[in-house]
Structures are given as C-alpha cells and as structure tokens.
Nucleic acid binder design. Structure first.
Lengths: 335, 335
DNA sequence: ATGAAAGCGCTAACAG
DNA sequence: CTGTTAGCGCTTTCAT
C-alpha cells in the first residue's frame, strides 16, 4: 500500500506538497501532473484512519435504528445513507430489535467507533442508553422516536396530529365508532398516535369504548390479528385506523380473507404509503410521513452541529404527516 | 477527551501498561483497580482511529447492496449486521440502486474508507466496478449475486435449481403451461432463475411459449403488471412462478383484484417467505432462500480470509433453496 | 509554492 | 509485570 511518503519519493516533492495536492491545494502544474501519474501508477489510496487521527474527524456517522426489516426504517436508512454519502460521509448502521439491552450495547459500540455524529431512533421510555447519551458530547440527532428532556436535535412526525386528523376525516364522514391499531406501549410513536386518537375521539364525542383500541407490535401478523379481533366484535367499528405500514397490510389481508369489502363494510385508513400499499385495490387512504424530508432534516441538523459545535441551543423539527384521501373511506349514514 | 497518556498520568503507570490493560492483558490487581476507576472517572473511550492506524485494521466491514427497501436485502443486511457486530465488527453500508455508475462510485468510496473487508452484492454483468475489484487486495465476499471469474469468495443460492424445482413441482401436478416472472436481464439472480426454468421446461417437454416468460424489475408494481399480462393472455398459464418477494406480493394483489382464486384458477409459487407472505391466505408455496445461513457463511468466509490472508484459494458456497409446499398449488387434470 | 518537522493516540518491541 | 520508545500515515504550522 503506497503512502504519501512513497508519492513524495516517486515525484521528488515533499510530503507536505503531496498532502496539499491530495487535498486540492495549489501546486505547480508540473508537480500536479507527476503526482497524478504517481497516484494512478501506485494505486494510492488515502489512509482515512491516519487522516482521521490527525484531523479528528472520520467522515462517518452512526445510524441506530430499531430494525432493518421494516419498510419505514428501510426507507429511512436508505434516505439517510443517500444524503450522507452525498456529503462525503459514510454510514455505519446498527439495529437493536426493540430490545433495550441491545440498544444500549449498540449505542456504546458506536460511541467507540470514531463516528462524527449519530442519528438514532431511540426505543422510547424504556431506553437504557439515556445516561450514556446524556454524558456524551457526540452530536446526536434523534429521528422518528425521541426522548424528552434530552437537549438534543430531534426530527419527528407530528404523530398525535396525524392520528387526530385521521379520526376527524372519518368522523366528518359519519363514522362514530372508529377503531385504532397502534403499537406497543412505551414506544414513542405508538403512544403519541394513540394520544392523538383519544384526544380527537373525546373532542368529537365519538364512541370511546376501550375495545376500539388494539395494540399490535408493528408486524403484519399483529395487524392481521387485531383486525380479526375487530371483526369478531359484537358491534364492529365502521372504520379502522392502522398506525404503520406492516400492520396496515396485515389488516388488509385479514379483510380479504374474510371477504369484507373496503370501504363497503369497513372504512380503512393506513399509515406509510410505501411500495406495496400503492398496488392495493381499492387505493388506501393513508397517513404519509415525509420520510425523505425527515432524513434530509436530520442530516442537515447534524451537519449544522458539526459545523458549529459551540452552539448549545437545539431544534425540534416536527413535520406534519399528510392525509392522502383515497377510496378506502366511505361516507356512512349519519344517524 | 482522555487518552492513554491521561490514564497513565492519573494512575501512575506507563502508557504501555494502560494499553495492556485496555487490551485485556495481565496487570497487577492494584493497577487494574486504579485503571478501571480512572476509565470510569474520565469517561475514557479508546480512539479507534489511532488503534486502527497502528494495528492496520479498523474492525469495520463494508456492505454494498442494491437497495435497502427490498425485503430480501433488508433481511440480509440485518443478518450481516448481526453476525458482524457479534464478532466486534461494525458495518458500513452503501446501496447503489441498481445503477452501474453508483455501484462503481460506492465501491470506490468504500475502498477509501479503511474497511477490513467487503461483503457485496454486485449488479451482475453490467457491473463497472470489476476492474477496481480485480485490482484491490481487500478481502471481498460476494453474496446473492456474483461475478464469474473473479477469484473471490462467493455465497449464492442455487438459483437455477430453485426455479427448476418449482417447475418440476408444478409439472408433477399436471401443469404444462407454466408462467414465470423473473427479474431484469443482466441481473445475476434473474438470469439464473430463468435459465433453471427453461432447462426444466425443456427437459419435461412443457409448453415453451415465449409469452410465458415475463420480466419485472423486482418491484411489487411490476409483479402486479406481469400477473395481469398473464391473466390477459388468450390462453392463460395454469400456474405461475414469481421469482422474488415484492413481485410475488404484487402478483397476489393482482389476483385478488381480479377475483382469481388461488389455487382454484391459478396455481402460484412465490419466492422468499418473508413476513408479509406468511399472513396471506391461502398460504403460498414458496421458494425459500436461507438468508441467515447465507449471511453467516459470508461473514465466516470473510473472517477466515482475514485470519489467513496468504491463502490464495477461494470458495464458492452454494446453498439450495427450499421449496415449501403449501396450498397455493393444485393438481389439475392430466390430459 | 514548497519543505522540514512535530504530533494526532495508540500498540508493540524490547529491556529490565 | 512494567516502562521506554519508535512509528503507523497523515496534516499542519512555520520558515523559506
């Protein structure tokens, strides 16, 4: 493996000049030519460890997420990696599979890994990495799920408003008995969405029956199960809101299997209008989170902090989700 | 940020002893105690850049895949990250979105990033990173898709056999007009699976009509479209094989929308029995690739090569896919 | 524009 | 078991 010294020797200039050349500084045309040739000939590649040691930055950012096999996080990582690599950063990823111990472990792992910053989706209330997080001076941006009172940059969807909007949309069309499938207790997004639902149900004086609230685990299977439970109720809801992509698809499959027509027999609002959801008939009314914008915002916040480490203020960036109205919602008789 | 020097100063031992302690060597119990305290007190974290510079290894491996928002690759990255982190390696990921230029760019990018090894799924025939790949001495393991004649370790499914098995399974149940939805031309897995299909069709003297072969792009939408094309044929196939997860689900949705019963009117064999596929009724007969085993094999091969760089032999590890027989395949009248 | 030299934080001889 | 020391490859003053 060739080094700057080798290049210096090969071209007759000093290592300082080589370094300058490597970093786009001005060198004599003659030297530039010779250096370019030498680089090509030797297959020289910069040693980013040495550079990082000297410059105290690795041009690498950590990304810590719940899991990869979830369409929303897959989309998010995809966007993050895109944005970051466009800015010259590489992305080192870890998943914690919704396990608090693993979350802490991976967090610690990343802290040892010479990353310039971290973009993470913390577990939520049950997080065990909070003390560590509080200690570290590493720039950290939380995305999608956040922890309160952390004095960190955060990027979130307005989850409560999103769920409330969905309820309002249904109520405006005559629905008074509206079910919701939300995520596990203690998970930030699940709690927020449920709170929004409850607030809207109370405000609009809709049916507040507790049987209308089901908790899944954000998997297709749980969406399927929760939907079946709704269908088995003596008095079915006339509409159901399902709060993530996987559970929405699971719910649709449950309806298909029982030959329940959408929206004929049941109106449906799903979350996250990702690939598969777009090919379902009838087209589903969806709460769409602006994944790409959120990722871009997270990267922007991180870069800003990297550029200005002295700034001890922080921002919370809250994006509205968009309600895409489509055929899976029907107006029913107002009684 | 504390360094070994600080620890040395704080505890009265030398940096060599600190280093030994940090790396699990034997030090006097007394010294160990004091060092542990000092580490805790200062929040010392090793500088992995400095360590890497010295040891010439970064404990980081690159992973280059087509995309994240694909269930198979999501599962693969998930497994890889698991396996790698279990072995102390962190994972830096890049996606190239099936674009040859991006593939090359990201490959080059990773080569500059002080990784100890690379696990990659190359594009296939159209790859532009082959010259670079040929040059580099970096340990590289190819997985899922491979490039021939590269003298590298490779981990693949026996794609041709998998497709041929699916054809045989259907033929044994009386089907003679079997459609296949495969991936884009030039993509390794697509070409292999199609070849296996063709071989089996020829061997068993089934209907070789070219209209029975459709090419999707591995997206749900394309699966939907191809399936509709099959349904619009004057003479429909009696059975269809769909060669990845996303297209399979897209195909199922097309059938639901046209109220075609599975397997009553059409037998179906899909690929990749991932989450969503498991909740569909009737349960789908599936070609299942052993993702976890493949990932484990890739990591094992990489570690082996890392442990023994002198070894200039290489292995190709080919896993059989398993055909999971379920209700979506029906026996029809032999005529 | 170039060069000499110091030093980033760590590990690994080597000597004791 | 411990300490001294050289040096990994690079960037960066500071002169020239």
């Amino acid at each position: 493996m060739a080094t700057v010294k080798d290049l210096a020797k090969a071209t007759g200039v000093s290592v300082a000049t080589v370094s300058k050349f490597l970093n786009g500084g001005n060198v004599l045309p003659e030297n530039r030519r010779r250096l370019e040739r030498a680089v090509k000939r030797t297959g020289y590649r910069i040693n980013s460890l040495a550079r990082g040691l000297k410059t105290r930055c690795s041009m690498t950012v950590g990304v810590l997420i719940p899991r990869f096999n979830n369409a929303f996080y897959a989309a998010m990582v995809s966007e993050l990696e895109n944005q970051l690599s466009r800015n010259g950063y590489s992305t080192v990823v870890c998943a914690y599979h919704d396990d608090p111990a693993t979350e802490r472990e991976k967090f610690d792992f990343l802290l040892n890994k010479a990353i310039d910053g971290l973009i993470m989706t913390p577990l939520g209330a049950a997080s065990q990495c909070l003390p560590l997080l509080r200690q570290t001076t590493l720039p950290v941006v939380m995305i999608d799920r956040v922890c309160d009172g952390m004095a960190r940059d955060m990027v979130v969807t307005d989850n409560a408003a999103a769920a409330a909007d969905a309820v309002r949309c249904l109520a405006a069309r005559g629905h008074r008995r509206i079910g919701i499938v939300t995520g596990p207790e203690g998970v930030f997004t699940a709690d927020e969405r449920l709170a929004g639902y409850r607030r809207a149900v109370a405000e609009l004086e809709l049916d507040p029956a507790p049987e209308l609230v089901r908790r899944g685990d954000y998997s297709p299977d749980s969406g399927n199960r929760c939907m079946q439970e709704f269908l088995d109720l003596r008095r079915r809801p006339t509409a159901v809101i399902i709060t993530n992509y996987e559970m929405t698809l699971g719910g649709v499959i449950a309806l298909e299997n029982r030959n329940i027509s959408i929206p004929g027999e049941l109106s449906l609002i799903g979350f996250d209008n990702l690939e598969l959801a777009q090919v379902i008939r009838p087209p589903l009314t969806m709460v769409v989170q602006p994944v790409a914008k959120m990722a871009a915002a997270a990267v922007a916040l991180l870069r800003q902090r990297l550029a200005n480490p002295a700034d001890n203020s922080f921002s919370i960036k809250k994006f509205p989700a968009e309600l895409m109205l489509r055929d899976s919602v029907k107006t029913i008789n107002m009684k």
